[in-house]
Write a protein that binds this DNA or RNA. Sequence first.
DNA 1: GTGATGACGTCTT
DNA 2: CAAGACGCCATCA
Length: 116
Amino acid sequence: MSSGFFARVYELVAIIPPGRVMTYGQISAALQSPYSAKLVGFAMSAAPAGQALPCHRVINRLGEMSPAFAFGGENTQQSLLEAEGTPFLPNGRINLELARFEPSQEQLEQIEAAFT
DNA sequence: GTGATGACGTCTT
DNA sequence: CAAGACGCCATCA
């Protein structure tokens, strides 16, 4: 709904399986807009409540999340990721090497087809 | 209706 | 190798 980009981001985030995470850059790149990483982050900030949108699975390129209070707690996001089994590094950041989720072409097609 | 800002990332200098 | 500026779409003022 909306214009599209936001909706696509929501759909893409919604298909992220537990124990996996996606970076803003990856999502933006998946939407064929590698320069709109901000939009992905903004889409999360504008994420509609009530929707099954695991925004806590979306992190920055460093494997960190900026504003922890965005989820209602300081380490709420990190706790959720740990509870899902997301691989963390001893530095307290997410191991993107293991947690990085890459959507299949079918997944992307499914999303695009939903907004054609 | 116009201007400015935003959970970031990539390119250029 | 490092720092700075630019870019995208949508929402708020």
